[in-house]
Amino acid sequence: CHSECLGNCSQPDDPTKCVACRNFYLDGRCVETCPPPYYHFQDWRCVNFSFCQDLHHKCKNSRRQGCHQYVIHNNKCIPECPSGYTMNSSNLLCTPCLGPCPKVCHLLEGEKTIDSVTSAQELRGCTVINGSLIINIRGGNNLAAELEANLGLIEEISGYLKIRRSYALVSLSFFRKLRLIRGETLEIGNYSFYALDNQNLRQLWDWSKHNLTITQGKLFFHYNPKLCLSEIHKMEEVSGTKGRQERNDIALKTNGDQASCENELLKFSYIRTSFDKILLRWEPYWPPDFRDLLGFMLFYKEAPYQNVTEFDGQDACGSNSWTVVDIDPPLRSNDPKSQNHPGWLMRGLKPWTQYAIFVKTLVTFSDERRTYGAKSDIIYVQTDATNPSVPLDPISVSNSSSQIILKWKPPSDPNGNITHYLVFWERQAEDSELFELDYCLKGLKLPSRTWSPPFESEDSQKHNQSEYEDSAGECCSCPKTDSQILKELEESSFRKTFEDYLHNVVFVPRKT
Rank of each mutant, 00 (worst) to 15 (best):
S274L: 09
I157P: 00
P336L: 07
W207S: 03
N320C: 05
S400T: 09
I405L: 15
S173G: 05
Q216E: 02
S119F: 04
W408V: 01
H233G: 02
N200K: 14
R370S: 06
I379K: 05
P304Q: 03
W286C: 12
L331M: 13
E368C: 07
P329F: 05
N142V: 05
G373T: 08
Y355E: 00
C317R: 00
N142S: 10
V238E: 11
V170W: 05
T127M: 13
V397Y: 14
L186D: 05
D335N: 06
T323K: 08
K242S: 11
S208R: 09
L161E: 00
S173C: 09
P288D: 04
S171R: 09
T254M: 11
P284Q: 09
E122A: 15
Y223L: 14
E246F: 11
L147R: 01
Y300R: 03
V324Y: 12
C317Q: 08
G131S: 02
V397T: 08
K242H: 12
H233I: 14
T185M: 08
F221P: 00
L123A: 03
L201K: 00
L349P: 01
K267V: 12
D335T: 12
I154C: 03
W344V: 06
K209R: 11
E310Y: 05
N211R: 10
G343S: 07
N200V: 10
L186H: 14
V238C: 15
E246Q: 15
V381T: 04
E109V: 02
L345W: 14
E155P: 01
T353P: 00
K209N: 14
A259L: 12
Y305I: 15
F296P: 01
C261R: 02
R138A: 05
T383N: 00
P304A: 15
V128I: 08
Q245N: 12
L227K: 00
F358I: 06
T353F: 05
G348S: 12
F311A: 14
A374Y: 05
V325W: 15
K253V: 08
T364D: 15
R247C: 10
E148I: 13
G373R: 03
L265V: 14
L172I: 14
T254W: 07
S173V: 06
I214A: 06
F299G: 05
K360C: 07
G256D: 03
L107G: 04
V363E: 01
E109G: 15
L349N: 00
D257G: 02
V324E: 14
N307V: 10
D326V: 03
A385W: 06
T383Q: 00
Y285F: 05
V170G: 13
Y160F: 10
R138D: 04
R124I: 13
N224T: 04
A303S: 10
L107F: 07
K360P: 00
S171W: 02
L212R: 00
K218A: 12
R247F: 12
W282S: 00
E184M: 03
R370G: 14
G295K: 13
L201I: 08
F268H: 00
I378Y: 02
L265T: 10
S401Y: 11
K360N: 10
T383K: 00
Y191M: 05
R138T: 05
Y380Q: 02
P411A: 13
S260D: 09
H106K: 04
E368D: 15
F220W: 08
N190Y: 06
E122P: 06
P304N: 14
F174W: 06
D377A: 11
S389M: 05
T213R: 12
A195G: 11
Q306L: 10
E231K: 04
S119K: 02
K226Q: 09
S239A: 11
I135P: 00
Y300S: 06
L349R: 01
L212H: 01
V359S: 01
S192M: 02
V117A: 13
F193E: 00
Q314E: 12
S396W: 11
V324G: 04
S400H: 12
L345A: 02
L107I: 05
A149V: 14
N340L: 11
L293A: 07
P329I: 09
N320R: 14
K209I: 15
Q258P: 07
G125R: 12
S333G: 06
R165I: 14
Q339A: 08
S269K: 07
K162M: 08
T273V: 15
D206V: 08
G343E: 15
T118S: 10
G183K: 02
A356T: 02
F299Q: 05
K112H: 10
I327A: 05
Y372L: 12
G159E: 01
D315T: 07
A303I: 13
L153F: 10
N263G: 15
E237F: 11
A168V: 06
G183R: 02
L298N: 00
G131A: 04
R347H: 12
T241W: 08
I250D: 14
F311N: 14
T118M: 05
R165A: 13
Y300G: 00
L147F: 09
I327L: 04
T371H: 10
V363H: 07
G343H: 13
E237S: 08
Y160P: 01
N200D: 07
T309L: 13
Y191F: 06
P351V: 07
N320A: 09
N387R: 09
L107C: 12
Y300L: 07
L227R: 00
L349F: 01
K301F: 03
N320L: 12
T127H: 03
A316L: 11
R370L: 05
W322P: 02
F358G: 15
P342H: 13
R182I: 04
V170R: 05
N334T: 14
L294R: 03
G243V: 01
K301W: 04
G348T: 13
L392I: 06
K209Q: 07
T353G: 02
L345T: 11
P391I: 05
M346Y: 01
A149M: 10
N263K: 10
Y285W: 05
S132M: 01
S402V: 15
Y223D: 06
H233D: 06
D393N: 09
T361A: 11
G243M: 04
L133H: 00
S366H: 15
N334H: 15
E302G: 15
L180T: 10
K103E: 08
W322C: 02
V128K: 05
R291K: 08
W282V: 03
I154E: 00
F296Q: 10
K407F: 02
I327H: 02
P336A: 00
S119C: 12
E187N: 09
W282M: 05
Y305S: 05
L227A: 02
L293K: 07
L349A: 04
Y285N: 09
T118I: 06
C261E: 04
D249T: 14
L108V: 15
D315V: 09
A195R: 00
K301C: 02
E246M: 05
E156K: 06
E236T: 14
R202Q: 03
I154N: 01
L161R: 00
T364S: 15
